[in-house]
């Protein structure tokens, strides 16, 4: 698989490390009442068949954290943006 790194250009998947579901959001609160949100954040991950946004680290290249949008069934890659840009567009468009 090839991943279009926004910094380095298209590179093979071997250069990247996957971290899974990019839809998770770290809760802002440290209040004990937020514990359920924390459990979800730490442990719950989507793993759909079809289009999926995932965190990837370009560990063998520019070392940026990216969000890749791909089809988990066909491996078609729809896009790849930095995790910062992904955060800015809220809900994400990789």
């Amino acid at each position: 698989m090839l991943i279009p790194c926004p910094h380095c250009g298209t590179r093979p998947v071997e250069e990247f490390t996957f971290l899974g579901d990019a839809s998770v959001k770290r809760p802002a609160s440290n209040d004990p009442s937020s514990m359920e949100q924390w459990y979800d954040y730490v442990y719950l991950r989507n793993n759909p068949k079809g289009r999926f946004d995932e965190f990837v680290h370009h560990s063998g290249g520019c070392r940026a954290w990216l969000v890749i949008s791909r089809d988990t069934e066909t491996h078609e890659v729809f896009g790849c943006v930095t995790v910062r840009d992904y955060g800015k567009t809220k809900g994400g468009k990789a």
Binding site: T17, F55, H57, R63, A64, W65, T82, R84, G87
Partner: peptide, 14 residues
């Protein structure tokens, strides 16, 4: 640890 720092900065505390 370096990868963790990169994630923390870029994804959590930009």
């Amino acid at each position: 640890v370096m990868a963790q720092m990169e994630f923390a900065h870029q994804a959590l505390f930009p």
